[in-house]
Write a protein that binds this DNA or RNA. Structure first.
Lengths: 355, 355
DNA sequence: CTGTTAGCGCTTTCAT
DNA sequence: ATGAAAGCGCTAACAG
C-alpha cells in the first residue's frame, strides 16, 4: 500500500496527492492549485488567459496542470458564466438528407472560427417532435438555435426569444414567430430555368415535384407558373404533377407526362428526388426531352444534366453569420435572407424542342 | 405609429404576461419553488421524474414552472452529476464529405433513442488540428468520443481513455491507442468486385484511386491485388493509378489507361471521387468499358453504374452501439468491427470485355 | 412524501 | 500580482 509503486516520487517530493487510487478521477482546478502551491483563482486566471499572472507562477501552474492532465470543465465555466454554454443547436429535418448536412457544414465552419461548437438534433421531419427536440437543446443552454421548421407553428419559441435566445430558420421561414430566415431564391430561381427553356423554343413544359404543401415546393411551383404566364402559356396546369394532388411518385408522373398525346418537350423537376424520378423515366430518351432539375447533385456534371444550383454551404454560413450578429445585438427586425440560385447549363436543359 | 397596423389586437386579451420588461432573466428551480411554496428539492424531484411527489404538489409545481417558463439547466445538472454531460462528440474530417454526415446521421438516430445528443466538430482533414478539436470536445465533458482519425497518432488520448472516456474510431483504426474501430470491409469487398469482373472474362483491369497512403485506399488496393493474383494476373501493377505515386488526377489517370496500346477492358475506382473522374473520362465509351466504383452515389441506379456499396448509416449505428456498450462496461479488449460491403450490379460492371 | 445542508468546478466580487 | 469567500443551478445524502 505504501511505497509509491508508480515512481512519481523523486520529483520535488510531491506526496501531496494520495498514493494510488484505483479509479483516478479527473483533476480539478483545486487539485492543480494544491500541487502548484497557489490558490484556485490563480489557476483559473492562467487558464482564462486574460489576467495578470507572474511568468514564474504561470509556469508552475502549467507544469502542475500537465502533470495532472488537467482539463478545464466547460460545464462549470458556463454555469458560472450566466448559465449559457458556448454551443449552438441545429435542428434538422430528415437527418439523412444531405442538404441539411451541407448547411450544417457551412455553419460549423463559420462557428468554429468563433470557438462555438454545434449540437445536432433531428426532427426526422416529424412535426410533432420538433418542440421536444428543441427543448432538449434549450435545456443544454445553447446560445442560439438554428432550425429547419417542420411543425405547423413555432410560436412556442416566443418566450425563449424574449429571454434572449436568437432563433434562425433555414430553408423555410418560421410561422408565428419573429425569427430571421435564410431561404433559397426558390421562386425566381425556378422562373429563370423555365424562361431559359421558353427562350429555347419550348412551350409545353412539365413540372414535377412531390410532396406538395412545403414552402419551398410551393415557391418553386409559383416560379414555374410565373414564367409560363409571362410567356403567354395559359394551360400550364396540364403539365403540373404534384404528388399530394395526384398521389403518384415522381417517376410515374414523368412517364405519364411522356405518354400524353402531346407530351411536353421539356420537364422541370422541383427537387432532387423528383430529378431522380424523371431521369429514370426518361431513360433512353434523355437526348430528346429537355430537362432541368432543382438542386444540383453528385456527378450531374459528368452526366450533362442541367440544374438550378446554389451554394448549400453558403446557406449555413449565412445562418451562422446572422446568428453571430444576433448574439451581438439581439434587437432589430427579423431578416429574410435569400441565397442566390443559378441555372447551370450542362446539356440536358439546352435540348431544343423536337419539331 | 400607434394603431396596431397589423391587426393582431382583438384576440382574447392576453395581458397575463408582464407588460414589457427590458431583460427578464431565466427562472431557476428556486424561483419555481418560491412561487409554488415548496422547497427546491421538491421541484427537482418533479423534474427528475423518478421520485415520490404528491399529485397535488406536483400540479402546483408544474403550474408555477409553466408560469415562469422554467426550463431545467442541464449544465448545472451535469455538473452536479459527476461533471459529465449527456453528450457525445463526433470528430469528422472534411465536413463537406457526405460520407461522414451519413455516419453522423446513423449515430444521431441511435443516440437519440438514449437521450444523448451529439456535438459535432471537424478537423477539415488537417492532421495538426485533430488534438485541438478533440480538446474542445473533451472540455465540454462529452461522455464519449467518436473520431475519424486523421492525425498520425492518437496516443494523446490514452490519458482520457484511462479516465473513462471511451474512444471509438470510424472508417480508420487509431494508431497507438487502445480503441474500438468500425471500418468497412474494404479489402475483401474490393476483391469481390474484381473477382466478378474476372468471372465475366476480364483480365486487363485498371484500378484508379487517389490519394494514396490512406488506410481505406491501401486496403482496397490490396483487395484488388488479391483478386488479380488469384486469377493469375501477374502484371497488375501496370493498371494501377494512384495519385500519390504518379501525381495525376483520377480523370487523367483514366484517360491514360484508355490510351494504352492494350487498354484495360474494365476499370475499378477506389472511391467516389475517382468514380467521377473515370465516368468523365469514359464519356461516350461508357458502354464499351466495364466499370465498378467503390462508394455508391446519388442516381447511380438511374444511370446504371455498378458499385461496391455499403450502409453508411449502419456504420454510424454500429459506432453508437459500441459506444453505448462501452459506457455500460468500459473494460474488455478493443473491438475491430467490419461493416459489410456488397457489389450492386447495375449494368456498367457487367459489360463483357470487347474481343 | 418533503425539507435542509452541502457541494459539483469554476469564476466573480472584493480584498490584500 | 494573488487570495478568500460566495455563489452559478442543481441534486445527493441525509434527516424528518
Amino acid at each position: 500500500m505504501a511505497g509509491e509503486p508508480d515512481g512519481d516520487g523523486g520529483l520535488e517530493s510531491v506526496a501531496l496527492t494520495p498514493p494510488t487510487r484505483v479509479t483516478r478521477s479527473r483533476a480539478t482546478l483545486a487539485d492543480v492549485a494544491r500541487l502548484a502551491g497557489v490558490s484556485a483563482k490563480t489557476v483559473s486566471r492562467v487558464f482564462s488567459g486574460n489576467a495578470y499572472v507572474a511568468d514564474q507562477t504561470r509556469d508552475r501552474v502549467m507544469a502542475a496542470a500537465n502533470r495532472l492532465r488537467f482539463r478545464p470543465n466547460d460545464l462549470a465555466r458556463s454555469l458560472r458564466h450566466g448559465g449559457v454554454a458556448n454551443t449552438v443547436g441545429f435542428v434538422m429535418g430528415d437527418i439523412t438528407n444531405q442538404f441539411y448536412f451541407q448547411v450544417a457544414a457551412g455553419m460549423e465552419r463559420e462557428l468554429a472560427k468563433h470557438g462555438i461548437t454545434m449540437i445536432l438534433a433531428a426532427t426526422e421531419d416529424d412535426p410533432g417532435s420538433e418542440e421536444r427536440v428543441v427543448e432538449t437543446l434549450l435545456n443544454q443552454r445553447v446560445r442560439a438555435l438554428v432550425i429547419v421548421p417542420i411543425a405547423a407553428d413555432q410560436s412556442y419559441l416566443e418566450g425563449e426569444r424574449q429571454l434572449g435566445t436568437p432563433v434562425i430558420c433555414v430553408d423555410r421561414p418560421a410561422r408565428n414567430l419573429v425569427a430571421d430566415a435564410i431561404v433559397l431564391r426558390n421562386r425566381s430561381g425556378t422562373a429563370d430555368a423555365v424562361r431559359a427553356l421558353v427562350t429555347n423554343g419550348h412551350r409545353r413544359i412539365g413540372f414535377i415535384c412531390s410532396p406538395g404543401g412545403l414552402y419551398t415546393h410551393e415557391q418553386r411551383l409559383a416560379g414555374y407558373r410565373d414564367a409560363l404566364r409571362e410567356a403567354g402559356v395559359t394551360d400550364s396546369r396540364r403539365w403540373e404533377r404534384l404528388k399530394d394532388v395526384d398521389g403518384r411518385p415522381d417517376e410515374e408522373s414523368a412517364r405519364e407526362l411522356m405518354a400524353l398525346p402531346d407530351p411536353p418537350t421539356a420537364i422541370v423537376a422541383g427537387n432532387n428526388h423528383a430529378s431522380a424520378g424523371v431521369i429514370r423515366a426518361l431513360g433512353e430518351r434523355r437526348s430528346e426531352i429537355a430537362f432541368i432539375g432543382f438542386d444540383d447533385f453528385e456527378l450531374a456534371d459528368a452526366l450533362g444534366i442541367s440544374v438550378i444550383a446554389y451554394d448549400t454551404l453558403e446557406m449555413g454560413r449565412r445562418a451562422a453569420l446572422r446568428l453571430l450578429e444576433r448574439l451581438d445585438d439581439p434587437t432589430g427586425p427579423p431578416q429574410h435572407i435569400e441565397v442566390d440560385t443559378h441555372v447551370i447549363a450542362r446539356g440536358s436543359g439546352e435540348i431544343p424542342p423536337a419539331s
